[in-house]
Design a protein around this nucleic acid. Structure first.
Lengths: 202, 202
DNA sequence: CGTCTATTTGAATGTACTCAAAAGCGGTGG
DNA sequence: CCACCGCTTTTGAGTACATTCAAATAGACG
């Protein structure tokens, strides 16, 4: 009934599994539907699950002391997401993770993840590789925040997530690149002006 | 001759090794001394080594298109450091890694790291855990850059790295928290004023 | 001691934010 | 089907935080 092929494909990019191992892995997953605006994780709660998105899109964000949202990650189809700090410390976390659209996820609980590592050590390798990639992208984010202007970060976002630009409220792009929605609106207006001038000059 | 106990202690926090495994692991390491201002890694070169600092302090930094330095990480004693993007893609990287003081490192080449994973799969677990921790700290860095003012980031830095405040040129702290050295100087002046006023009011 | 680099200071500037108000847009119920 | 409501986006004026540039001062090291 549940289609495990997307997650299997994701995993087999990095490790190969026997039929038994596949069955065992699938048996550890829980399928869940998160409706638009529904939550996977809330701040001040201890996270129990790492999620793999099979359909839809989740986002993780932090709310600061002034009540402003800052989006850390978008997780469209085929992405892994979770509050890793809370997951590894098993302490209450700072992040909220909710659904931008109706979303289907496969959940792996921390207990089952440990079990998986014990029974099928190859998964240590798999998650090591996933973590390497996440680390690279967060590192890039730190670099970009320190070395690029807001306009450059927006241009960057458009290049990196072309599929999200038209599906996402502009506000959320602003919260991701680290500017106010008002300022992003002005940036876009200025870009359009530049574009038009560019065209006229040709 | 080479003292492997610091790195062993670091590893045995997370996994336990047999004598043979220890010997094998040690045989894969290269010892190197990097003098103050010497380089482990230069931008545009493909990284070959992950380093463990047994003594001294390294830093990794990025130089942007305007020639400004942005420090990504300090690696004092007992820390791991490397240009992970270049290491995993085996393409030329963006980072420089150099020594703040004379530094002793143990180097693990990418080839030897793969060999280690093959022969002693427990190391997959070890590096998975190291990566989890790095990821948490880079994630926190993104959060802080988006939600805190420069003054708050500086106060944060002082709390997090008390040992570095007096050993590091102020400039480098500025490049780490993401402000100009001039502005950090002004921030510190203002903090001192506040402190004095605070004292006078009591 | 002299040189080189780091730090401090000040004035002018710029980038991005705040606040307030208007305009646009989508969904829902009558 | 359209009117209304709530939310997003736009716009503008004023402001704040941080940078730039230039010059003076302080510190470190050979």
């Amino acid at each position: 009934m549940i289609d495990y092929s997307p997650i299997l494909k994701n995993i087999e990019k990095h490790i190969l599994l026997s039929e038994d191992e596949k069955e065992f892995f699938f048996s550890l997953l829980e399928h869940k539907t998160i409706p638009k605006k529904g939550f996977l994780t809330k701040e001040n709660q201890t996270s129990k699950y790492t999620a793999f998105v099979t359909n839809g899109c989740l986002r993780s964000y932090y709310i600061d002391q002034n009540g402003f949202e800052h989006i850390l990650q978008f997780a469209p189809q085929d992405w892994w997401i979770g509050d890793i700090h809370s997951l590894i410390t098993q302490k209450p976390g700072q992040l909220n993770i909710d659904a931008i659209t109706n979303t289907e996820v496969l959940l792996l609980s921390t207990n089952n993840q440990e079990l998986l590592y014990e029974k099928v050590p190859k998964f240590e390798r798999f998650f090591r590789i996933i973590l390497e990639k996440s680390l690279v992208s967060f590192r890039q984010r730190v670099i970009d925040n320190m070395s690029l202007s807001a306009g450059e970060r927006y241009a960057n976002f458009c290049k990196t997530y072309p599929s999200l630009i038209n599906t996402l409220p502009q506000k959320q792009i602003a919260y991701f690149i680290g500017v106010t929605p008002e300022f992003l609106s002005k940036l876009r207006r200025d870009f359009q002006k530049e574009d038009r001038h560019g065209k006229n000059l040709i």
